[in-house]
Structure formats: C-alpha cells, structure tokens
Nucleic acid binder design. Structure first.
Length: 670
DNA sequence: GTGCACTTCGTTTTT
DNA sequence: CGAAGTGCAC
C-alpha cells in the first residue's frame, strides 16, 4: 500500500520540527515506522541515532515489531523504541553515580511509595489514606513540574504545601537511603540532569540525532522538557498526536503541549492526517458525531472510503453475569458465521475489575483469551513474592522488598522480631537488612529469632553473590528450592491445582528473567538489576511467536487499547457511572470520558457491539444503572438496541454443534 | 510465632 | 462481593 500525500509529506519532512495531527486510524504508526525507515534508508541515519518514544509498553512493543518487519530485523538493530519511562531509565543508568545513587537501584511502584509515605507521615496523618494520597499527588505533581524539594520549601513557607514539601524532602532522603527511584523520578531526574549538565546534554544530543514521539498529546510538563532537551537547537524531531485521544490528563498530561510546541518552535511544520483507513463509514460517522460534542484544539475532519458497514449493536443484559454471557454468545455467533479467529475480537472496558466476570465466563466456555495490563500476572501473590525477592537480591537497601518476603515462607521472623529490628535500624539509621546482619544481633533478639535471621541473611548474601557470578536462572531455581517456596505454595493453596498454577507463574517469570538476561536480536543482554527494573516497569519484550500468533480474544481497558485495532470490538459496561465514570461525573470531567469512548469506538474495523447491564453489583450493593449518555449521543439510525431476549452462550454452543449454521441462524432469529 | 476467623474497606485509567 | 488487614486462640 502506498502512502497518501499527507502521509508522504509527514515521512519526508525531516529538515526541522514536525507536528503530525493524526486522527484515529489515519495510519500514524505507518507514518512513524516509514519515517524511521526513510531516515535509515534515504538519509543515512544509523538506527542507533534514532529514538522513538511512546507511552505504553504495548504501543512500544507494537512499534518495535512493525519497524523490524519494515526495515528487517538486522537493519533495525540499535534503534531505540521505548516508553518515556524506559528511556528515562536508560539515561539514569548511564549517569547513576552522578545522580547520587548506586547501581542496582530498586524501582518503587505506587504501592511501595504509599507504604513509605504512609510510614513517614504516621505522626501527622495517622495512616489516613486520603491525606497520604493527597501528599502523593502533591509530590507527583511537583516532580512532573520539575520542582525539587528545596525549591518547594523555598516557595511555600506556610499551609498544606509547606507541610507536603517537608514530607517531599523527607521522602527524597529516604528514597536515597533505599537506593530506590519512583516512576516520576524516571522522567524528572534525566530532565533535570540534562538541563543542568551541558556535557551530558550534548552527549545525548549526539547520541539521539532524531526523535519521534507518539501520542504527543499525552506528554506532561517534564516529558515535554525532556523532549526539548534531547532535541536541542537542531530540533530534528517529529511528534504525532491527536487531541481527541487525550486520555491521560489525570496523570498530568497537557494537551496544550500541542499548542505550546507551535510557540516554542516557530518553524514547526504542521501536517494533518484526515483519512481513516481502519473503520467502516458507519463506525467512523458515529465516532465523529460523538466527539463533536467536545471542544477542539485543532479542527480536523476524518473521512473513510471503506464500505458502509454493519449497524452498531447494543446488547441489553439483566446483570453483569448475563452481560458476559450475552457478549460471549454474540462473539461465538459472529465468529462462527464469519469464520474469523478469536484474536479478531477485543473486549474493552473502562476499569480493570470489569474483566473478572468475563474471565470467568470465557473460561467456562473454554474460549482462549488474553488480558493485557491490569493485575492478572503481576498482581498475583507468588509473582509479587518473587519480584520482592529479586529486588532484595539486587538491592539489599530495599526495605519494602525485604518486608514483603521476610517471613514468606514462614521462617520464624514474626511481628515482634520485626519491630525490634525496625527500631534498631531506625536508631542506627541503617537499612533493615543491614540491621539484620549486625553483630549485635544476639543482644537485641532472642536466640531462636537471631538464628532464623542469620540463616536468612546468609542465604540472601550467598544467592546475591552467586547471581552476580552468572548462570542466574539456575541460581534462582536453587534459591527457591532452599526457600522451600513450592512447599509453601502447596501448604497455602486451597487445592494442589492452584499451587501448580502458582508454580507455573514463578517459572514463567524466571523464563522472562532468562530471556531478558540473554537478550535477542532486538534487545541487548541485561544485568540482573536491569532485568528487575524492566520487570517492575512491566516492560518485557515479546516472546516471539507466543503472543502475536496466539489465537486469543483480547481483553483490555480502554486506556491500554489506544493505538490498537480489531475487526470486531465489544465495548462493555456502557453505563452512567462506569463510562462516564462516576468520579468524572462528580468532577464534571465528561469530556475526557467522551474521548475515552471515542478511543474505544475507533478501535473497531468492521463490527462494534456495546453492552449494558440493567442491574449491577457494586461493593455488595445492587444498583440499577442507566445506559451511558454517550449511547444517546450516537446517531440512532446507526444503532440497533437488542432489548428482547437474545440467546445465551449455552444455546449458541449447542445449536452450533447440533444443527450447524442453519440452526444457529434460527436461534439468532435471523 | 502461627494460623484462622472476623472485620473493614473499597473501584478509574498507567508507568 | 472480594481482597486485605486485625485480633485472638493455640
């Protein structure tokens, strides 16, 4: 397929800063990948001089795949395609000592951050979740605005800001002591570093000769500053964005960065991509009508030359179980009649917990599925345990990791012992693990506890040394054997089956560790700390054939569906309170929810099916939600509501096997 | 110190 | 309703 004139222009304009306003499905990924190929093939850029940045791991992975299939695996070697956070991580790693940290630092996720701040502020806030969360938000906002603790304290002398500022400073000190960074640090630290250090800045500007940024409307202040510093005076960059798909404002994203770019770079070239290659006319029309209800930064009119397409459907279900059942029945029917594959179907939802009921129903019907994002893998206890062990093994200053595993499996280090150790560590101003290694141990603890502690520290130190020496995964397998972790799983699981699955998850994690350690054609080998950092960012490479080829129904949130497309899409839970989400209704932020709906609708290529439940359980209570206002904003001629009884998954399955296509059609009332 | 029964609390979205 | 946290009996 040839590029259209606008796309072509976007690809070939390389002499200065370039902003591509790309509507949904207008081929922006094609533009980016083609541009990368163009830079390499026609403009003598080396792949290693080009960096492309996205926001989600999913998008980065997709782009990596697309580039390597366009350019060829070998030719794309060295190309930097990553999320903002991974890019930041890589910059930090190169200058870790300059920044005052030690190699092998831990990455704190928001749970770790919460635990630490909750702990620190205990005297003031007494564990009040709302207070701590407000504090976290303040700190995060300051980091996004590149404000260091001393600057905050200078600016605010009184009030809540001064109080939060005090904790911000305290928090930063403790993070240093833990040799830990949080997610915001991954952007803030490189940005501040590049801003302050001319030599380092020039080094990176030499290294990254061309920068491409995807989903530019989602950048926040620090990310935009990072972009500016990386491109420098040369300003060789292309950013691609669409204000209608800005769905991360809660994370500090500033769609106004699109406008700001125009001010900061007067020579900015603006190119609009308005032809949609993805969706049927009907779907695109509905999306356009919906989004017209929002104000716009830039005017653009998307059009499609594809066929008219089927009407959009709304399945109305009794309750959430029935919703899952009906959606799956409809999915099976569509699949059978169109002779499509499972992977041609996506089930999209506003919040993660909605996947649960569907997961159950899919399992019941033996339909292969894949849930991306959310908690499914990294939320599991055994995976969290192993991640904590890995963190502790690579960074013994990481108190949070230690706390998670210190008594898992149980090894006789209980609450009392831990309290004593904590007190001692605090007194001496050392990490917990260091306290556990202290020679005065026997003076503080009872003989039994001291023995357990010693055995534990010895094991950790020994394993840590062995890991540094190599053959890591074998070491890890030995390690969990010594821990008797498998026995622990079997002892605590309700059934052997569950323990078996848990053990398999541990194995899966180790396989990832191994793959990342080894590296492959696209990814350089990593050290153990790097692997742990990667895994914390959930940024693992695709394990080849495994995923892309697997025939599975795709389940994901609307947020993580951005940038993807599917022949058939189910957008479930189209109800007031869910989409738009209740908190957005309360905060009068409907526009972002509408963009979210817009993103969902524009994922669909051929068939889009909504679903609503008339009754839903919410924290044990029954509620009767009303259908989402967005459904009523769509042109009614293009929507078919199915209030009447639709078949459930059992009926579809039976008729399919017993009577074939004719039987299926008869029960579908066709 | 461990394990179980009981209570409480909560649900956006991601790195 | 389900996860995570608390308190209490061994």
């Amino acid at each position: 397929m040839k590029l259209n004139p606008a796309q072509q222009e976007a690809v070939e304009y390389i002499s200065g800063p370039c902003l591509v306003l790309a509507g949904a499905g207008s081929g922006k990924t094609r533009v980016i990948t083609n541009k990368i190929a163009y830079l390499v093939n026609e403009c003598a850029y080396k792949p290693s001089q080009i960096a492309a940045v996205t926001f989600t791991n999913k998008a980065a992975r997709e782009m990596k795949e697309r580039v390597s299939s366009t350019l060829g695996k070998k030719a794309s070697r060295g190309l930097k395609v990553s999320t903002f956070h991974t890019l930041g991580l890589n910059i930090i790693k190169k200058h870790i000592t300059t920044l005052g940290y030690k190699a092998g630092f831990s990455l704190f996720d928001d749970k770790d951050t919460f635990a630490l701040l909750n702990d620190l502020s205990m005297n003031d806030y007494n564990g009040d979740k709302d207070e701590v969360n407000a504090l976290i938000r303040s700190i995060s906002n300051w980091k996004n605005e590149l404000m260091m603790p001393h600057q905050v304290l200078q600016r605010y002398k009184t009030g809540i800001e001064a109080e939060h500022g005090k904790w911000y400073e305290e928090y930063t000190r403790h993070m240093m002591a833990y040799n830990a960074l949080d997610f915001d640090d991954l952007i803030m630290l490189p940005t501040v570093l590049l801003a302050d250090d001319k030599a380092i800045r020039e080094k990176w500007q030499m290294w990254i000769r061309y920068l491409l940024v995807d989903e530019y409307q989602d950048t926040n202040t620090s990310q935009y500053q990072l972009v500016r510093l990386l491109v420098g005076e040369r300003a060789r960059f292309t950013v691609v964005g669409d204000d209608d798909q800005s769905i991360y404002s809660w994370r500090g994203a500033q769609p106004k960065n699109l406008k700001l770019l125009n001010q900061d770079y007067p020579s900015l070239k603006l190119i609009k991509l308005e032809q949609n290659y993805r969706s049927s006319q009907r779907i695109l029309h509905c999306a356009n009508i919906l989004i017209e209800n929002n104000p716009h930064v830039f005017e653009k009119k998307l059009f499609s030359t594809l066929s008219q397409g089927e009407k959009l459907s709304v399945l109305v279900a009794k309750n959430e179980e029935n919703e899952a059942d009906k959606v799956i029945a409809e999915l099976m029917a569509q699949k059978f009649m169109q002779d499509t594959q499972y992977k041609d179907y996506a089930i999209l939802y506003r919040s993660n917990h909605q996947s649960r009921v569907f997961e159950k129903a899919l399992m019941k019907n033996r339909i292969p599925y894949k849930i991306s994002g959310g908690m499914s893998f990294f939320g599991r206890a055994e995976v969290k345990d192993m991640m904590a062990y890995l963190r502790l093994l690579t960074n013994q200053d990481d108190d949070n990791a230690l706390l998670r595993v210190i008594n898992t499996p149980v090894r006789g280090i209980g609450r009392a012992t831990l309290a004593k150790l904590g007190e001692f560590a605090h007194l001496e101003d050392i990490a917990l693990f260091e306290a556990m290694c202290h020679e005065q141990l026997h003076a503080i603890l009872g003989a039994k506890a001291a023995t357990s502690v010693e055995a534990f520290t010895r094991l950790i130190v020994m394993t840590s040394d062995n890991l540094a020496r190599g053959d890591s995964v074998a070491v890890l397998r030995d390690f969990i054997k010594t821990l008797q972790y498998e026995e622990h799983l079997y002892a605590h699981a309700n059934s052997p089956k569950v323990a078996e699955i848990s053990m398999k998850n541990v194995s899966t994690l180790f396989t990832w560790v191994q793959d990342l350690l080894k590296g492959d054609a696209l990814n350089a080998p990593m050290s153990m700390p790097e692997v742990v950092q990667r895994l914390t960012l959930r940024d693992m490479m695709e394990r080849g054939e495994d995923d892309g080829e697997a025939d599975q129904v795709q389940l994901m949130t609307l947020h993580s569906s951005k940038g993807l497309e599917f022949p058939n899409v189910f957008l479930i839970g189209m109800e007031e309170g869910l989409l738009p989400h209740q908190s957005s209704i309360d905060e009068d932020n409907i526009e972002e929810e509408r963009r979210l709906a817009y993103v969902g609708i524009t994922r669909a290529q051929q068939k889009l099916t909504f679903s609503v439940a008339r009754e839903r359980r919410q924290m044990g209570e029954f509620i009767e939600p009303t259908p989402s206002r967005f459904l009523y904003e769509l042109p009614s001629d293009d929507i078919e509501w199915e209030w009447q009884k639709t078949p459930d998954s059992d009926e579809v399955r039976k008729s399919k096997t017993a009577k074939g296509l004719a039987g299926l059609k008869s029960i579908l009332g066709d």
